[in-house]
Simulated scan of single mutants.
Amino acid sequence: MKYPFFLALDFEDAERVKQFIESNQLQGVPVKVGMELFYREGPPIIEWLKEQKHPIFLDLKLHDIPTTVEKAMNNIASLGVDIINVHAAGGSEMIRAAKRGLETAVNQNVPKLIAVTVLTSMDEATLQHELQVKESVEDAAIRLARLSKENGADGVVCSAHEARNIKSVCGEDFLTVTPGIRLQRSDQHDQKRVATPAFAKANQADFLVVGRSITQAENPKANYHRVIEEWNNA
């Protein structure tokens, strides 16, 4: 993968995805497929993206009883995606079941399993007052990252603000995938713990997820190259 950026394809249907990719000449770039698109289009959109040589992060954030997650992961592995995720809050048994489901699938390549720590739309007030988690966002993210590593995950989804400390606890090979990426002077939208590509790189993020800064820009292709520029110049 030349550049470690997943373009978030947060579109409502396949037709809009294809039009966006083709009109902006973004064929073959790494992409993230989330719930909105996958629940509408299902496996065929994954098959089309694979035919176009796009590395794929399938962002479904599974969170259910271990048996259900294991069986779901067994099916997902057959799609041939590169990365898939669960919620770390599902606990140790669920994370192990997810990994087992991927590894026992009849598939030559096992997708990387990453676990969501604390959503980048959440801040400390949400965590402590609404969810009654009496620790800082960073402490919660590190705790959940350690839990994920101990139970077979290959990495986590976290804010770029937590990536460096997660690496220090879980090791350099433990992947940090960081959404909430905004170009300099971009709108935060509904994200609270945002970061620029340069900040994410400096804080040891392995992969960035970039969505609205590109997909809602007047010139998406130019903004995609701005991400590259900001990363390279960090």
Rank of each mutant, 00 (worst) to 15 (best):
H63W: 09
L119D: 06
Q184L: 12
V137T: 14
A234D: 07
Y39T: 14
V210Q: 11
A200G: 10
T176S: 13
V209L: 13
R164Q: 15
E138T: 13
R193F: 08
L37D: 10
V110N: 05
G34K: 03
A77S: 13
S78A: 11
D206S: 10
T104L: 02
V156H: 06
R164A: 14
S186R: 04
A72D: 02
G91D: 12
E70G: 03
L113P: 08
V17P: 08
L183P: 11
R146E: 15
I84F: 10
A88E: 07
L127M: 14
A89H: 01
G34P: 13
I214G: 11
R146T: 14
L119A: 05
F207M: 11
L58W: 07
L119C: 10
H189L: 14
D82T: 03
Q188T: 13
V110E: 04
L144T: 05
T120I: 09
T126E: 14
A205Y: 04
V116C: 09
S186H: 13
K53M: 01
F38S: 08
V227I: 15
D154F: 04
L49S: 08
V110S: 06
L26I: 00
A217R: 07
I56F: 03
N75W: 00
E15Y: 00
K2S: 14
I166C: 06
R40L: 01
K112A: 07
N74K: 09
P44S: 11
G171R: 13
R40A: 14
R100V: 01
A14T: 04
V116T: 08
F5V: 15
D123E: 13
R164P: 00
M73P: 06
A205M: 09
E229K: 15
A195G: 12
P4W: 07
A198P: 14
G180A: 05
V118T: 09
F174C: 06
K99P: 06
E103D: 13
L208V: 12
N107L: 00
D187K: 14
P111F: 02
I56N: 07
R146S: 12
E12I: 03
L127H: 12
G155N: 09
W231L: 11
L7G: 07
F174I: 06
I83L: 12
A222F: 12
W231E: 06
A105M: 04
M94E: 11
A98N: 08
D10W: 04
K2C: 01
Y39P: 01
G211A: 06
D10S: 06
A97E: 07
K112F: 11
V227T: 10
E218I: 01
A115D: 08
N203L: 09
V33S: 07
R100T: 13
A200C: 12
M1A: 14
Y3D: 09
M94D: 12
S168Q: 15
L58Y: 05
L7M: 05
Q19F: 00
G91K: 09
D187Y: 02
T67P: 01
E93H: 09
V116H: 09
E22F: 00
V156L: 04
S136R: 03
K50T: 04
N223E: 15
A202D: 14
S23R: 10
K50E: 04
M35Q: 05
P30C: 00
N165T: 08
M35T: 04
I21M: 11
P30S: 01
D187P: 02
